[in-house]
């Protein structure tokens, strides 16, 4: 059902129940958020997307990601109150992840150069003093990839994200989706001849697959197994164990052959 909501005085059409953050971004309204990804369920942890509901069933400050659109809903994204809350939150983030360039940049955009709060010390932090515990990596690993290789350890201010017992975890597919979604680029991994080393995740080692044609390493073995299982068998046969480069060459070669046959006929 299409409905009308109002964002900063501008009417927008949307589907009922859609996340207000999604609608705002589609409409080009900038709302910062660290813990949101369109492929995952709303999480409400980073609190950056706070907006003010001025007309709706429950007025007041709430997160746009968890707010569901309904007809007549009216929100404002940049009231002085919202900006004030966001600034203090950014100060908290600056203290928590003092090395994060993303946080520093967003704080600077909000006019915050330094934080009043004591900076967290991160000795030998596998996440390089940049993790803000938004949980995107944990959720993408569990809810999208189905691996659940990493999770939260401890609680409150002592919460960390890593593999169970900080040991290498063979549940890891080595796909790197965690690093891909990380808003602060805190997650590190490196490919060292035939092995992907998940540096942030207790040095978990994942073997890499060699291309059947050129012999180059191109993807983690468990990840290709996971991906092949999801593919249409016909496509799977076509891809075989080729790296993207060789696959392209192979496809081109086939296409030329087909054309040549056509001409011959």
């Amino acid at each position: 059902m299409t409905i009308q909501i109002t964002i900063n005085g501008n009417p927008c059409s949307s589907e009922a129940g859609e996340s207000v953050l999604t609608i705002a971004r589609r409409e080009g309204v900038e709302i910062p958020a660290f813990c949101h990804d369109e492929t995952l369920a709303p999480y409400g942890a980073c609190r950056m997307c706070l907006v003010d509901v001025v007309s709706g069933p429950k007025k007041g400050v709430t997160t746009a990601c968890t707010l569901q659109a309904m007809d007549g809903l009216e929100i404002i994204t940049d009231t002085p109150e919202i900006l004030r809350l966001r600034k203090v939150l950014l100060e908290l983030y600056l203290a928590q992840a003092p090395k994060s360039k993303t946080i520093k940049a967003l704080a600077a955009q909000h006019g915050i150069k330094k934080t009043r709060f004591a900076k967290k010390v991160h000795p030998e932090d596998p996440l390089q003093g940049q993790c803000i515990l938004c949980g995107l990596c944990v959720r993408v690993c569990r809810d999208i990839m189905g691996a659940g290789a990493i999770s939260y350890i401890g609680r409150g201010q002592f919460t960390e994200i890593n593999t169970p017992f900080y040991e290498e975890n063979d549940a890891c597919l080595g796909c790197g989706a965690c690093a891909q979604v990380c808003p602060t680029q805190a997650i590190a991994f490196e490919d060292i001849t035939g092995t992907r080393v998940m540096k942030s995740w207790s040095e978990t080692k994942v073997p890499l697959k060699q291309c059947a044609a050129c012999g180059n390493y191109f993807a983690p073995v468990p990840f290709t197994a996971y991906a092949y299982e999801k593919l249409d068998p016909a496509i799977r046969d076509e891809i075989r164990d080729l790296c993207p480069d060789c696959r392209r060459k192979e496809m081109t070669r086939k296409a030329i052959l087909l054309r040549a046959e056509g001409v011959g006929r």
Binding site: A45, C46, L92, Y93, A95, L133, Y152, G154, G156
Partner: peptide, 14 residues
């Protein structure tokens, strides 16, 4: 504090 959201996790600490 469970540590999920930043105001509670970091704010209470400070």
């Amino acid at each position: 504090s469970c540590g999920k959201c930043v105001p509670c996790r970091e704010g209470l600490k400070h």
